[in-house]
């Protein structure tokens, strides 16, 4: 029991020393710490803002898609009830309303002063899908139904929004990837310099039998710390960006996504850890022989 306590106390002391060494590493890095955090926070802010836009646009497309109405015009000679039953069998239908040609004509006559002519309107089915991604496949299936004369839906609007989202995703991810590589390069070089700077200590520790992780961990922690601090700064910037986006959405009476900020915050912290810790890990692997 006392052995266990003793060994635990030793491990705790070693952990404390590792954090102390990390602190000393940060102290040695001096002004460069601030430069790294500023660069990394800027990069993560850009990434976070782009990510927020992509998520919100995705939600917007989905919301718009589920509101989009497909109008199916039934052939005069077709049995409308039969066509309606056929359509009902299709998947992902959120809402379906049948407007008979008599009802449509009566409403039209109420709104417009029309001459007394024969009702030219067809029976119409208005339908909404659960998501915009099912619209195109459903449209194709509807076209193949024999009783369907023609159909209408706002194809161009959906196509444009989809293209913008896709474009933003590709540009955003490419820019973020390049910037992440740049950050990793900066951290890698900083840790390399620090390893050079601590060459003597490292050699003493190695030769006197100090564990490899004791030597490596302070560098990795320093890199990870840059990532986390930068991510937290970037989270602040993203908070304001999302607030602004939400205001724009509210102005246009569009639905906002409550969870966007949380998703972006989590991804930013993970990205920060990956880029910061990753940059340090590359330097440790390349320049620190233990």
């Amino acid at each position: 029991m006392s052995d266990l306590v003793g060994s635990l106390t030793t491990e705790l002391r070693i952990t404390g020393r590792i954090f102390r060494e990390t602190g000393m590493g940060l102290k040695r890095t001096g002004l460069m710490n601030i430069i790294i955090v500023v660069i990394m926070a800027s990069i993560l802010s850009i990434f976070g803002a782009l990510l927020a836009v992509i998520i919100e646009m995705g939600v917007l497309v989905q919301n718009l898609g589920s509101e989009v109405e497909i109008s199916v015009y039934i052939k005069d000679e077709a049995n409308t009830q039969q066509v309606r039953d056929e359509i009902m069998k299709l998947p992902h239908i959120k809402k379906l309303t049948l407007i008979s040609k008599e009802k449509a004509w009566a409403e039209m006559q109420k709104e417009y002063p029309l001459p007394d002519v024969e009702n030219p309107l067809p029976d119409t089915i208005h339908m909404q899908m659960t998501s915009e991604k099912h619209i195109l496949t459903t449209v194709e299936k509807l076209k193949s139904l024999p009783g369907v004369e023609t159909l209408q839906y706002p194809k161009e609007v959906l196509d444009k929004i989809s293209k913008i989202t896709q474009g933003a995703s590709i540009v955003g991810m490419s820019v973020s990837f390049i910037l992440a590589m740049l950050t990793m390069f900066i951290i890698n070089n900083t840790i390399h310099l620090l390893i050079q700077n601590k060459r003597r200590e490292i050699e003493i520790l190695r030769m006197m039998g100090v564990g490899n992780w004791y030597i490596r961990l302070p560098f990795l922690l320093q890199g990870a710390l840059y990532g986390v601090v930068s991510a937290l700064v970037a989270c602040g910037a993203v908070y304001f960006a999302v607030e602004f986006l939400n205001q724009v959405f509210i102005t246009f009476q569009l639905q906002t996504n409550e969870s966007t900020s949380n998703i972006v915050y989590i991804i930013l912290v993970l990205m920060g850890l990956l880029v910061g810790g990753g940059g340090a890990a590359i330097a440790v692997r390349k320049y620190l022989q233990v």
Partner: peptide, 8 residues
């Protein structure tokens, strides 16, 4: 220095 690193 080394003893500290070894958790003594």
């Amino acid at each position: 220095y080394v003893l500290r690193a070894l958790g003594v």
